[in-house]
């Protein structure tokens, strides 16, 4: 059961179950986001006289958001790497970098939303804006939740060190963070790139 080369977060039976359960939850999240995507695709062209995606999207801002999130996913991976090498301080540093990048992403996204509202696209404008803001907002809410969650875990790691329990909690949070990056890739591709004029 507990070989020496098993990562710490997989040692106890309960941790294995927690990680598996979280993967199952991510399956549910895939269904949730694909429902949001499906609704967006159905309503995409129903702008009801309001602005369409191509009128308001700004490539530069979206690219910055994308790079922020991609980088944060990378640094979250580094944090796990250091966690597995039992290097607590390195792990904490890279986690803080991850959180800062995540906060930067949120800052950009909120500004982007404010920009859209000034352009006359609020969530109440049309079928398109409703689906757009809800898809983006759900992702943004997930990022917000992730930042708070990982911050709480950071306290626990700092206090308790890298143990069987804290490592499995942190590993699960990192899965969540990578998953949000996956969702963003599809938003970037199928909402922004597809919606702009080439």
């Amino acid at each position: 059961m507990t070989q020496a080369n098993t990562p710490l977060e997989y040692r106890s039976h309960q941790s294995q179950m927690n990680i598996l359960g979280f993967w199952i939850f991510l399956g549910a999240e895939i269904v949730l986001f694909s429902t949001l995507f499906a609704s967006y695709f159905v309503l995409e062209h129903n702008t009801a006289g309001g602005p369409a995606g191509q009128d308001i999207f700004i490539l530069k801002d979206v690219l910055i958001e994308t790079f922020l999130l991609l980088t944060s996913s990378f640094t979250a991976g580094l944090a796990i790497h250091f966690m597995r090498n039992n290097a607590k301080n390195d792990m904490i540093v890279w986690t803080i970098v991850t959180l800062l990048l995540g906060a930067g992403f949120l800052y950009m996204e909120i500004n982007e939303f404010i920009h859209y509202v000034h352009e006359g696209a609020t969530i109440q404008t049309s079928g398109f804006t409703a689906a757009f803001f809800t898809l983006l907002g759900t992702h943004g809410a997930h990022v917000t939740f992730g930042i708070i969650w990982i911050s709480l875990l950071l306290f626990q790691i700092a206090k308790r060190g890298i143990t069987e329990k804290t490592s499995s909690k942190f590993f699960i949070a990192s899965l969540y963070w990578h998953f949000l990056d996956v969702v963003w890739i599809f938003i970037f591709t199928f909402v922004y790139l597809k919606g702009m004029v080439g």
């Binding site: 990562p7 997989y10 294995q16 990680i19 598996l20 993967w23 199952i24 991510l26 399956g27 895939i30 269904v31 986001f33 694909s34 429902t35 995507f37 499906a38 695709f41 996913s73 990378f74 979250a76 991976g77 899965l175 990578h178 998953f179 990056d181």
Partner: peptide, 29 residues
């Protein structure tokens, strides 16, 4: 490369779970 989906004792279950979820996603979309 980041999430190590095949890792752990239940690696194959994770893979099945992801394939199934992608199937559902395709059906829904």
């Amino acid at each position: 490369m980041f999430m190590h989906v095949t890792e752990g004792k239940e690696g194959w279950i994770n893979v099945v779970n992801m394939i199934y979820s992608v199937f559902l996603a395709l059906v829904i979309v």
